[in-house]
Amino acid sequence: MALNRITPYITLFFSFLILSCSSDSDSSGTNTTDPTLANKQALGASARDFLSAEEFTSMNVEIAYVDGFRPSDATLSNLRAFFSERLNKPDGITFTETVVSASKVGSLNRDEYTKIEEDNRTVFNVGDELGVWVFFTNENSESDEGNSRILGTAYRNTSCIIFGETLRDFSSGFTGPSLTQLETVTTEHEFGHLFGLVNLGTPMVRDHEDETADDDGEETPNKHCDQENCLMYFQTVADATSTTMNGLPTFGEFCLEDLRANGGK
């Protein structure tokens, strides 16, 4: 699948070891009587809320999963360390686990996984606590095509989905990577987009947004970092599908500058 336009969600896909994403423009209106509205905004809208303690001094991350697809304890430990290292949340970070009924529709499209969130999400912004939804599904993405496989998608300001069946497909082979490696890298990459990277709600201190040539040969910004050693580089998660990855990737120099300038550590 070639990236030739900005489409309305961030998608992480694996295609011949090439990874790419696009930006989310979803917003659900201005009905302020809906207490969940604050968690139904465009991707990147809560970047500073994640990073700083100005509005939210704590965070509650709802780890939702289908039975049998719970992320490993090591993955959750990695996420805790990742959040503590980058986010200013002096009152702490809580994980709330929610078991979701297995989907029977097959591969999921955006409407379907958004509906799953709306039917099952229990954690929202409350007072000075930021609510987040991360769903580890038993399905793959309907947008998979040929050798292109989507691993995860950040699609609202505090929401992302991890396609657990696809991650298991990659880790099940004799030469496949560990499931914890795939879960950790994919989830942390998607949180990078929730944090507003790259140029997705968190302004760039220095220009480092990658550009990919489309079918017409025109270069299009793709909301990824152009530093190859960065967690937000477009191929980082594709590299995680290999057993040759040496340690877990982290944010590069330019992305760290952006996060710190927008209230993060």
Rank of each mutant, 00 (worst) to 15 (best):
138 N>P: 00
151 L>R: 01
136 F>E: 07
175 T>K: 09
151 L>E: 05
164 G>K: 03
158 T>G: 00
185 V>Y: 04
143 S>Y: 13
156 R>G: 09
170 F>N: 07
187 T>N: 06
151 L>I: 09
172 S>D: 14
149 R>L: 11
166 T>A: 14
140 N>E: 13
183 E>M: 11
152 G>V: 07
156 R>C: 06
151 L>V: 07
137 T>V: 08
165 E>R: 12
169 D>V: 11
144 D>E: 10
159 S>Q: 14
179 L>Y: 02
186 T>Q: 03
185 V>N: 03
188 E>A: 12
144 D>W: 04
176 G>K: 04
151 L>G: 06
163 F>G: 09
168 R>T: 08
168 R>G: 13
175 T>C: 09
136 F>A: 02
186 T>I: 12
149 R>I: 14
163 F>P: 10
171 S>D: 06
179 L>C: 02
168 R>Q: 15
167 L>K: 05
174 F>L: 15
179 L>V: 11
162 I>G: 02
149 R>G: 00
188 E>H: 05
138 N>A: 08
143 S>L: 14
167 L>V: 11
165 E>P: 00
149 R>M: 08
140 N>H: 02
186 T>W: 06
183 E>L: 11
175 T>V: 15
145 E>P: 00
140 N>D: 13
172 S>G: 15
167 L>F: 10
173 G>K: 12
143 S>V: 13
155 Y>K: 06
149 R>N: 07
177 P>G: 03
169 D>Q: 13
179 L>D: 06
162 I>K: 02
171 S>Q: 03
158 T>R: 11
158 T>A: 09
175 T>Q: 12
181 Q>E: 12
181 Q>K: 12
167 L>P: 05
149 R>V: 14
160 C>Q: 14
162 I>V: 15
162 I>N: 03
168 R>A: 05
146 G>S: 03
143 S>C: 01
169 D>K: 10
181 Q>C: 08
147 N>M: 11
171 S>F: 03
181 Q>R: 15
163 F>T: 11
161 I>C: 09
142 E>M: 01
183 E>H: 07
186 T>V: 15
162 I>T: 07
142 E>P: 00
146 G>M: 07
176 G>H: 06
140 N>V: 14
161 I>W: 09
164 G>H: 05
158 T>K: 10
147 N>T: 13
144 D>C: 02
153 T>G: 00
162 I>Q: 05
164 G>M: 10
177 P>S: 04
